[in-house]
């Protein structure tokens, strides 16, 4: 029980970080995040506009889903992939190697300011937690727990009725 509460807390924290990162970028012009992505110099400039549009929405939706616990396994698969993408981006950026103290711009220009080295560690943490969440058997304190519990007996009835036919 204690371990599952711990993982529930970790799930909330990871969800909160990602949802906040998405929200802070979505409430600023997409050009701000375009500037951040360009600064990294990893992706071709033609990819940048759509990446700057899609990434904050993915962070906001996946983070929120993870926080409330709707489809947590699917959401944690998404957050694991997203954070892996961030890790790879940071790792292949010259900026990370040469000026790791630079503001990462991951929380927009007016949000929280973390250096590239700090956000690398945060992303690594998110990746590891998401990976662990993928292999949990059940998810307490989630919307899923409520939804599936409520619907459970009906399922059983349905299964039973199917069994008698």
């Amino acid at each position: 029980m204690k371990a599952s509460s711990g993982w529930a807390l970790a799930r909330l924290l990871v969800g909160l970080i990602l949802a906040y990162a998405g929200l802070s970028k979505l409430l600023e012009p997409a050009a701000n995040f375009e500037a951040t992505l360009l600064k990294y110099g990893v992706y071709p400039p033609s990819w940048i506009p759509w990446m700057a549009q899609v990434t904050p929405w993915a962070e906001w939706l996946l983070g929120s889903f993870l926080m409330v616990g709707y489809a947590p396994r699917l959401a944690s698969t998404g957050t694991a992939l997203l954070s892996l993408g961030f890790i790879v981006t940071l790792g292949s950026s010259r900026l990370f190697l040469e000026a790791g103290g630079t503001d990462c711009g991951c929380f927009g220009h007016s949000g929280l300011h973390l250096s590239l080295h700090q956000i690398f560690l945060v992303d690594l943490g998110i990746f590891l937690v998401s990976l662990r969440l993928l292999f949990l058997r059940d998810f307490p304190f989630t919307l899923d727990a409520i939804l599936l519990k409520r619907e459970g007996p009906e399922d059983d009835k349905l299964k039973r009725s199917k069994g008698t036919q």
């Binding site: 600023e28 012009p29 050009a31 701000n32 500037a35 360009l38 600064k39 400039p45 220009h109």
Partner: peptide
């Protein structure tokens, strides 16, 4: 809160 451009808005 309409999105106003900030000076750092366009890196290019």
């Amino acid at each position: 809160r309409p999105l106003a451009p900030t000076a750092a808005a366009d890196f290019r």
